[in-house]
Computed example of a mutant assay.
Amino acid sequence: MTGHPRLILLDIDGTLTDGETRGLDLELLASLADLNRRARRRPELPAVTLCSGRPPAYVEAILQAIDGHMPAVFENGCGLYVPAGYGFLPHPAIGDGSVIEEAAERVRATLVASDRVFLQPGKLFSLSIFARDPADKPHLLAWTRAALGPLCSRVELIYAASCLNVMPRGIDKGAGVALLASHTGIRPEEILGVGDADNDLAFLARVGRRGAPANANERVKALVDYVSPYATGQGVRDVLRHFGVLDATKTASA
């Protein structure tokens, strides 16, 4: 990809923020909101949106905080939140959702009932499984496989920074980017993506430019074009500067 990207696509937890329970970087959110306001005035400048595993309502709230107007990916590719018209569009491959409903029943009957895990509230089309004891996170994959049994062949199990996601088979953040591209007309190769964890690999592999904060795992670092020496929000600032987005936007709008 030559020139500046047409769209900036950010993961939330571990990238834009420090993760669950941690305070938000309000200065960074304000800077991204400024980029979005400038992009509305000058369509040739890139807007900023989100590609997150979080539920739709949370993605909506963070998109409001950055004054976003472009669609955002929620639940690791399960759908798009579209600010124009206040729309929530599930991915066409989701189907009737019965597979995830059955998976939730099995996880609740075994892992939740034994108080080893809890499920993140608010998910509509997927599951995010958290270990009660964070030290047990490495065991989540084996525990979940045992709980799901033959249902494993019909879902995807993908680690995020702090949990294990159970996804409908064929759905990931890469599928979310494809849906976003179809909805907006912006080609994946025109997108700059920033992420940190395994569930970001599928979308980072599709976009034209890729960056990661210092806290990203080694698989993400091996994939991206630039790894910031700074973690999370400071890393996002640095990645945007590295690719000329912040400076280019300020110069163009001066």
Rank of each mutant, 00 (worst) to 15 (best):
C78V: 03
S52D: 02
G176Q: 07
A146C: 00
R6T: 11
M167I: 12
E156V: 10
E44G: 05
L7Q: 11
A254L: 13
N165W: 04
H91F: 07
G14R: 02
G53F: 03
G193H: 07
T21Q: 06
I8E: 09
L32T: 07
A72V: 11
S114C: 08
E102L: 14
Y81S: 09
V227H: 02
L80W: 09
L201S: 02
P43I: 09
M167P: 05
A175Y: 08
D238I: 10
A252M: 04
N36V: 05
V224K: 00
P138C: 13
G3A: 10
F243V: 08
D196V: 00
H4M: 15
L35N: 02
V166W: 08
A231P: 06
G195E: 02
A47M: 03
R219M: 05
A131W: 13
R37M: 13
F125S: 01
V73D: 04
A214S: 13
E102C: 04
E190W: 00
T49Q: 13
R108D: 12
P213H: 01
A146Y: 01
C51W: 04
R40F: 00
N165Y: 08
G79W: 03
L119Q: 03
A109L: 08
A197K: 05
L240S: 06
H91V: 14
G85K: 08
V166N: 08
S114K: 13
R38F: 04
L127W: 07
S128V: 04
R154N: 12
L10P: 02
Y86K: 15
P168R: 08
I8S: 07
G53C: 09
T15G: 03
T249I: 12
D96S: 03
D198W: 07
Q234Y: 13
A231T: 11
D18Q: 11
L157V: 10
A205R: 15
P5H: 08
D133G: 10
T232Q: 12
E101V: 14
E60S: 10
H69F: 15
D133R: 14
D172Y: 06
S126Q: 12
G122I: 09
P46A: 09
A214M: 14
R219F: 02
G174H: 05
R241V: 11
G244V: 14
Y86Q: 14
E27V: 14
V239Y: 02
G185K: 06
A142K: 13
S128N: 13
S228I: 11
R41I: 03
Q64N: 12
E189M: 08
T144K: 12
E75S: 05
P213I: 01
F243E: 09
G14L: 05
S31T: 15
L7N: 11
I186H: 04
D200G: 05
V220Q: 00
L148R: 11
L223C: 06
R22G: 03
P150E: 13
D13Q: 09
R41A: 14
V99D: 00
A131M: 11
T15F: 00
A254T: 14
V73Q: 05
K250Q: 11
D225V: 02
F88D: 06
L32Y: 03
R154W: 00
E60Q: 12
L164W: 02
V117S: 04
P168Y: 07
D136H: 13
L223A: 04
S114H: 13
